[in-house]
Nucleic acid binder design. Structure first.
Length: 258
DNA sequence: ATGACGCATCGAATGCGA
């Protein structure tokens, strides 16, 4: 079974890319972020034709918005971080039944945070605190759990094209990395690092200044798996192919196989 | 320090992303 996370930077603008990519990569579950559309605009028909008959959608006008697309039925859909008031549509969770038991998928579009010291950075810290508490609960209820999405955190220096020049800037701060580490310490594993990976592996590249062509990127899209799930994980990889297409998302899809 | 690109927005200049 394959599960993918992909920040598409507008599902309206990227629908054809999603259809083309899933035609070549018919993953079981596709978790999207930054839909930038309201629920009523979600392209259910096109995605059903592509095999994703089961979609849990938490949209928002203009900004944010997340969805879980699945070839298999979804149940127990939960929107937002339970216990944390959020104006934004950033988190959606759902369960898929597999031969090994329930798989709980939590899909998040983490706060960007703009700049350390800003109001948005404070919001990011509060949001991460809320997520942490929520996940502890979820993990207790659903041992086979994965947390996927656009984390907007480069966990280590090797996850950034310029860890020295960008030290203490957004995605690289000690505070953000401490939050990421707390997720690891609660018993989640960075599936990408469970396997040997190419040097300078990133999942996001700036549209500007030939960021992709120069591989000036960050690894900020992650798939964390619980202790119970860890022994089942067969692979995890970033697919840079759609980043080379015309009018791409600035993020690449990341896929885990269990 | 700013802007560079791209997307969305009652439609042009601005907010936001990372």
């Amino acid at each position: 079974m394959k599960i993918t996370t992909w920040n598409v930077n507008s599902l309206t603008a990227r629908l054809q890319h999603v259809l083309d990519w899933t035609a070549a990569n018919p993953v079981d579950v596709l978790c999207l972020q930054e839909l930038k559309l309201t629920d009523d605009k979600f392209p259910h028909d096109a995605l059903r034709d592509a095999g994703y008959a089961h979609c849990a959608v938490f949209g928002q006008k203009t900004y944010n918005g997340v969805a879980i697309l699945s070839r298999h039925p979804l149940r127990d859909v939960v929107k937002n971080i339970v216990g944390f008031h959020d104006e934004h549509s950033r988190v959606i969770a759902a369960s898929v039944d597999t031969p090994q038991g329930e798989l709980r998928v939590v899909n998040g579009y983490f706060v960007n945070g703009q700049e350390p010291g800003s109001e948005k950075f404070a919001y990011k810290m509060n949001w991460l605190g809320g997520l942490n508490a929520y996940l502890r609960d979820e993990l207790a209820k659903h041992p086979r759990l994965m947390l996927v999405g656009d984390f907007n955190i480069a966990p280590e220096d090797r996850d950034s094209f310029d860890p020295v020049g960008l030290k203490d800037t957004i995605h690289h701060t000690v505070e953000e990395r401490a939050h990421f580490r707390q997720l690891i310490e609660m018993g989640l594993y960075d599936s990408f690092r469970m396997f040997e990976q190419p040097e300078k592996s990133y999942s996001w590249w700036d549209y500007r200044m030939l960021g992709y062509q120069k591989n000036r990127g960050l690894r900020i899209d992650h798939i964390l798996v619980s202790e119970a799930l860890k022994p089942e994980v067969k692979s995890c990889a970033i697919d840079r192919v759609p980043r080379k297409w015309e009018k791409p998302s600035d993020h690449a899809p990341v896929t885990v196989e269990i």
